[in-house]
Design a protein around this nucleic acid. Sequence first.
DNA 1: CTTCTAACA
DNA 2: TGTTAGCA
Length: 97
Amino acid sequence: MRNAEARISSVGVYGITVAAELVGVGEQTLRLYERKGLLTPSRTAGGTRRYSDDDLVIVRRVLELLEVGVNLVGIRHVLELEAENRDLRAEVDKLSS
DNA sequence: CTTCTAACA
DNA sequence: TGTTAGCA
């Protein structure tokens, strides 16, 4: 089943230290990605960053694009296009059903 | 934990 | 340009 138990994407939250260790980058790097607009992690009332499982896959995509030679500004656009494409693909799926 | 500054490849 | 280290 595809309900809340199996599909945990934006619910699983991690601190910046554990999130950085899971993806293999430093904490400062994650803050830089957010500063550049690549990430938008949720925040607690105290201002602490909450990285969801969804955010982690984004960071991995960032690292993947970096190895290909895309800079952070370019990655930002790639991420936007991917999100837009994902939206359009979902609508096409709906129409072709 | 946060932001900022500075130095390095 | 991107990453890392140290300070407040």
